[in-house]
């Protein structure tokens, strides 16, 4: 693998966003994910290669470290930010169709619930795994989920809830999705949600951490 891709992967794993980022100390003053991704493209490395050989593997390591409690949420967010700073250079290639993603992932916090940190974290990790994210935000009602599914055929859907009171809305939305689009896969998550609850409401998968969701999603990857 190209030395640039190795450097890029390291920057993402350790949250080195750009040259100005002071962390990690051993890279102080050096280029970060932002500059290296740009340079990799300028030197003719294919966007697909940048995504598949540097960004996705780095984020997989980050997700795995988080699951094993080697790192914590802040470091995962730093890594995700570094990944985003590299990803912005790839966006034109996604838009032109030259580079394909694994698929689309629609995500939202269910109606009545305004909590978004867990949802954002999951969205960033799934984006880092090579998926296009359609983030519907917070307090998302069933109709909005259904419209997004209609507009994005083949997308997988993630629903988040942090309150026991709003879990009821999660149930209603999952039932409506399954009733209208039986083939759509649904993932659920949030502090009060469990695998038992997931099965009870007819959702397809629950994971207590983002990497579990990424691993599950990979079976539906289009590339």
């Amino acid at each position: 693998m190209s030395e640039l891709l190795t450097q890029l992967s390291y920057c993402v794993e350790f949250g080195k966003i750009d040259k100005a980022s002071p962390y990690p100390p051993n890279l102080k003053g050096q280029e970060g994910a932002d500059e290296i991704a740009r340079r990799a493209l300028d030197e003719g490395i294919k966007p697909d290669e940048i995504l598949d050989k540097a960004l996705i593997p780095a984020m997989a390591i980050v997700g795995d470290k988080f699951t094993k409690k080697i790192i914590y949420v802040p470091q995962m967010l730093m890594a995700a930010k570094a990944m985003s700073s590299a990803m912005k250079h790839l966006k034109p290639y996604f838009q032109s169709g030259e580079t394909k993603r694994k698929g689309k992932f629609i995500i939202g916090t269910v109606s009545g619930d305004l909590h978004d940190i867990g949802k954002n974290l999951v969205a960033m990790m799934i984006e880092g795994a090579g998926w296009e994210i359609i983030d519907l935000g917070v307090d998302v009602n069933t109709d909005k989920f259904l419209k997004a599914i209609n507009d994005n055929p083949g997308a997988v859907v993630g629903l988040s809830a942090l309150l026991t009171t709003t879990m009821e809305h999660m149930k209603k939305t999952v039932e409506a999705i399954k009733g209208n689009y039986s083939g759509v896969t649904t993932l659920v998550g949030g502090a009060p949600v469990t695998m038992d609850y997931c099965l009870k409401i007819g959702a397809d998968f629950y994971s207590p951490d983002p990497q579990g969701a990424v691993n599950y999603l990979n079976q539906f990857a289009l590339k």
């Binding site: 949420v73 802040p74 967010l77 995700a80 930010k81 985003s84 940190i117 954002n120 974290l121």
Partner: peptide, 8 residues
């Protein structure tokens, strides 16, 4: 896009 600061 400063999710870390938002989280803190």
């Amino acid at each position: 896009s400063d999710v870390l600061e938002g989280y803190i």
